[in-house]
């Protein structure tokens, strides 16, 4: 749900302000790639109606956001291109190499799955770098990043629960990557809570 809220907050920001300033196109493109490569199992495995709908929502919303930031006549003008310079190709390349080395099974689908898990763990980096560079974080962008990080933190609680309640719980690729992913938010969370406590605007040190 916090993942859904983060997407809604981002769409709201873009729709209401007709601006994507403060948002990293590179992070958004990485998420689109993450969901497209992870949900290849849409065609092979059925888990539940909820699961299928969520997969379609995550694919559609990530593509829609990338389309908006690249193609929308008004929105694309507010994109902070000069601040969004993270070399995201290295993240893609590194995740691909790691997926070829560390995976659950040597099949196309499993390698893409592992790739998407590794890439998702790192995909927030261009966004965090952009926020750090711009210093001031507008309210909706701050909420967006907070909910995006919160959703991964909740996953960790869920894994602890599943570890104790399920017979065979072994998903160390997802767990280790998820912990790394959440750890990357630690700095952001710290400043988010400080600003919340002081009832002040969110500011990141440069």
């Amino acid at each position: 749900m916090t993942h859904l809220i983060s997407i809604l907050v981002l769409l709201l920001k873009i729709y209401a302000t007709k601006s994507c300033s403060g948002i990293s196109l590179k992070t958004q493109e990485l998420y689109a790639l993450v969901f497209l490569t992870r949900y290849l199992d849409l065609f092979t495995d059925f888990i539940s109606v909820y699961n299928t709908i969520m997969k379609l929502v995550f694919i559609a919303s990530s593509l829609a956001i990338v389309w908006c930031m690249r193609m929308h006549r008004v929105v694309k003008r507010s994109y902070d291109k000069n601040l969004d310079t993270f070399r995201h190709y290295f993240l893609i390349l590194g995740s691909l190499v790691l997926a070829l080395l560390v995976h659950e099974k040597f099949t196309i689908q499993e390698i893409f799955w592992a790739f998407s898990i590794y890439l998702e763990a790192l995909a927030i980096l261009p966004q965090l770098v952009l926020l750090q560079r711009s210093g001031n974080v507008d309210n909706l962008t701050g909420q967006y990043v907070f909910f995006l990080g919160a959703y991964r933190a909740f996953y960790i609680l869920n894994w602890i629960y599943r570890y104790f309640t399920e017979q065979r719980f072994s998903r160390w690729i997802a767990c280790v990557s998820g912990i790394v992913q959440t750890a990357l938010y630690a700095d952001f969370f710290y400043y988010y809570f400080i600003s919340w406590k002081n009832n002040a605007k969110l500011q990141l040190p440069s």
Partner: peptide
């Protein structure tokens, strides 16, 4: 059991 493992998380 050798039940096929699926990725049930999003």
């Amino acid at each position: 059991s050798s039940e096929e493992k699926v990725h049930d998380e999003l």
